[in-house]
Design a protein around this nucleic acid. Structure first.
Length: 470
RNA sequence: GGCGGGGUAGCCAAGUGGUAAGGCCGAGGUCUGCAAAACCUCUAUUCGCGGGUUCGAUUCCCGCCCCCGCCUCCA
């Protein structure tokens, strides 16, 4: 099956073909966090989806060049820095650091670049783009000194969101203090400095001020990836106005088709409602880790539903993730035991189980792909139960897993070291069992369990497993 | 009001014009001193509701209901 994705622009499933058909290189731009506080796991659902998308494209032989921006200047960052009595850059730095730590814990592959909006290189680019837009009559400076995009002059404005400009309704969420605009839909490209901004300002042909939110992405994307890019991702809430504005800005300047495939991730919900800082119903990764779950478990929980479906976050869902991973872990352990010295760690099997990738080809059908994984697990477990899977076959399935895991990245990183205390109790238990003292054996099993380890008795003696986590 | 997403078992969730993958939970069984893990069996005559097309629809068409989101801060 051909690789295909749902393109927000056309509202259709489209077969994927890179811009440059002669090479395997793809340019991908992904909207990153605004670093005014910790990102919440709803934000990370989008980043994990993008990670899966990148990894699957790579599995299909594409070389992905991905950029993720960091919005480090806007109303919220400025307000936060003021409240914290810190320079803006120092204030945002802590949240950039936290963001990268969280990404690592969630095993999100790093982007090739993480440009910051406040980088002078991009401020210059933004100013150049705004100047070009003014020259073309697509932007104007209003009496409040700010520069706005003249959406009525860009015929395609509204095409991505499928909005009719005349029917835009104010939801009252944003305070309407920009009275100087020609059209209520005109958005700020350059915000004139005011007292609230303190020392946050850059010089421009229109006076001191700072960039509007949308222009940074147009500037960074075109600067780092070129005027035309293959894939642009984000959450569905970015469709309008953010991505609509990006198209207007980028295409307004370059005259080129900015993005070939717009791919948007649905929301993570809590109690059936969007997880959002403004609603206060959000969890950060730290919150989840504090409950005893791991980054790997969180990754699985956020990964397991197709990106186009709203996903309701629950602690039951986290438990399910834990149990499902436990099934995978147990299977891997067993395959390794069966494979013994036939294990070939350097090999990646490219033949077995193509159904996994085939499912992902279909608009990242992760449920179908995981379904196939679990069917494979049951089939091979059954074969091992019956002694019908030899070491070479077990090794082959491990090499298959290696391929699958390049996309999923769900393998426990390392088998935990067995603590001396656990080891000592296990030895005692072996003695007790030798003496058929089952009462003592069971008591020791409980004590080992209390230390977080599970002990199972097999033909080859006791087997220890770290309970949960990884 | 406009534009989208969703409604499949107790929960999560695939999927197809021909009669419902997979995961979690639960019950029974094999194995075990007992467990655990694994395996086996069972768990939706039914896919929001009502029409229509069809030999046949959960899947296509029409109409409706409910939940969620976007409509200029948002992943």
């Amino acid at each position: 099956m051909a690789l295909r994705f749902f393109n927000t622009y056309s509202r259709e499933l489209e077969e994927f073909a890179p811009r440059d058909s002669s090479s395997r290189k793809i340019d991908m731009y992904t909207c990153g966090p605004t670093v005014y506080s910790r990102a919440h796991i709803g934000n990370f659902r989008a980043y994990i989806f993008e990670d899966l998308l990148q990894r699957h494209l790579e599995a299909r032989g594409y070389e992905v060049h991905r950029v993720m921006n960091l919005t480090d200047v806007d109303d919220k960052t400025i307000r936060g820095a003021r409240t914290a009595r810190m320079p803006l850059s120092q204030f945002t730095e802590q949240f950039k650091d936290a963001f990268f730590k969280d990404c690592e814990a969630l095993r999100i592959k790093p982007a090739n670049e993480y440009p910051s909006a406040t980088d002078q290189r991009y401020i210059d680019k933004m100013i150049a783009m705004i100047s070009a837009l003014i020259d073309k009559g697509l932007a104007y400076q209003a009496e409040d000194k700010s520069v706005y995009y003249r959406i009525k002059s860009f015929p395609n404005y509204g095409k991505l969101a499928h909005f009719n400009l005349d029917e835009l309704q104010s939801t009252g969420r944003v305070k309407n203090d920009e009275y100087d605009k020609e059209h209520i839909g005109d958005f700020a490209l350059w915000k004139a400095w005011d007292e609230e901004d303190g020392d946050v300002k850059w010089n421009s042909p229109w006076g001191p001020g700072r960039p509007g939110w949308h222009i940074e992405c147009s500037a960074m994307a075109t600067d780092l990836l070129g005027n035309e890019i293959d894939i642009h991702c984000g959450g569905v809430d970015n469709i309008f106005p953010h991505h609509e504005a990006e198209i207007a800005q980028s295409e307004g300047v370059t005259g080129k088709k900015f993005v070939r495939y717009w791919v948007h991730c649905e929301h993570l919900l809590v109690d059936g409602q969007k997880m959002a800082k403004s609603l206060g119903n959000f969890y950060t990764l730290s919150d989840v880790l504090a409950k005893g779950y791991t980054g790997r478990e969180t990754r699985y929980a956020l990964l397991r539903v197709n990106y186009r479906k709203p996903l309701n976050f629950t602690w039951d869902g986290m438990d399910e993730a834990r149990e499902s991973l436990g099934r995978i872990d147990g299977w891997l352990r067993r395959l390794r035991e069966t494979a013994g010295d036939k294990i070939d760690n350097n090999k990646i099997d490219m033949q077995l189980g193509q159904e996994f990738e085939n499912a992902l080809d279909d608009n990242l059908n992760i449920s179908g792909a995981l379904g196939f994984l679990f069917e494979t697990i049951r089939d091979t477990n059954r074969a091992m139960d019956r002694g019908e899977l030899d070491a070479a076959q077990a090794s082959a399935w491990l090499n298959w897993w290696k391929r699958v895991n390049q996309t999923l990245d769900l393998e426990p990183k390392t088998e935990s070291e067995i603590p001396a205390e656990v080891s000592k109790l296990t030895d005692e238990r072996a003695q007790a069992r030798l003496a058929k003292d089952f009462r003592k054996s069971d008591e020791l099993r409980d004590r080992i369990a209390a230390l977080g380890w599970e002990v199972r008795d097999s033909k080859d003696g006791q087997k220890l497993t770290r309970r949960a986590g990884g």
